[in-house]
Design a protein around this nucleic acid. Structure first.
Lengths: 117, 117
DNA sequence: CACACACTTAACCTAGAGGTTAAGTGTGTG
DNA sequence: CACACACTTAACCTCTAGGTTAAGTGTGTG
């Protein structure tokens, strides 16, 4: 279970929705207000509000209230966490050492010599 | 909408579930049969079967039938796609050029000079 | 050929995601 | 002080994810 914290789970959940991924991309350019994001994504305010709560719970965005408008900014730490997770599959990125063909051949070879359950 | 294909959406959906992420991690070590994965994750066969269909639709695993057992192997291409997506946020990985504080300061400064909608 | 094994499919259930409309709460503005 | 603006919350609806049990389909084995 190493390398898969509860943290990471909320990040994947957050990114599983295309609206939230696009919000992340918009915020990567510069901070935006909630209504601006709603307009950019053609969503109602209650709808975008729910998405933003999910992103906040994953600690992917930070909020600051200026007067009556809420400004949101991207938090990059969870994205770095995500990258770390992906990189665990790197060691033999290109080499398909554990591909199906290789393994099938391996199975056939061992089946000839050993014969346990 | 550049950089967010339909492909990618199914990959994120697939990885939003902890069972499926763990299956990916098990397959990164070596290919496994369906019943083996069910046992490893303490899931019933119908349950793991559904998860595997999701992973197949995201093209993250490949299947080969040997006799009556199904052997699954990891496909790394979607993981590379995922990594590419994450890396688009890299340019100023560490520098928080578009952080909330920076932007708030910027807003205050411009508000003094220009005064449009 | 009978039976066990390794799934697969069908039918069903429940909780939650993601949207809606409508009403409520602060906060600037004329 | 009235009113508009920028959310926020509540109540509701629908669809689907993720599990269950039970029955069905190939495929080796004695």
């Amino acid at each position: 279970m190493v390398g898969d914290k509860h943290d990471l789970s909320s990040v994947f959940d957050a990114l599983a929705n295309v609206h939230r991924r696009e919000v992340i991309r918009y915020l990567a350019i510069r901070p935006r207000s909630i209504s601006e994001l709603a307009r950019l994504r053609s969503l109602s305010l209650p709808a975008i509000h729910k998405h933003i709560r999910v992103l906040e719970e994953a600690a992917m965005v930070k909020r600051r209230k200026i007067g009556r408008t809420n400004i949101l900014a991207l938090e990059r730490a969870p994205l770095r966490l995500l990258q770390t997770w992906v990189e665990q599959f790197h060691p033999y990125w290109g080499s398909e050492a554990e591909s199906l063909e290789t393994y099938a051949t391996y199975l056939n070879k061992t089946r000839e010599t050993e014969e346990s359950s």
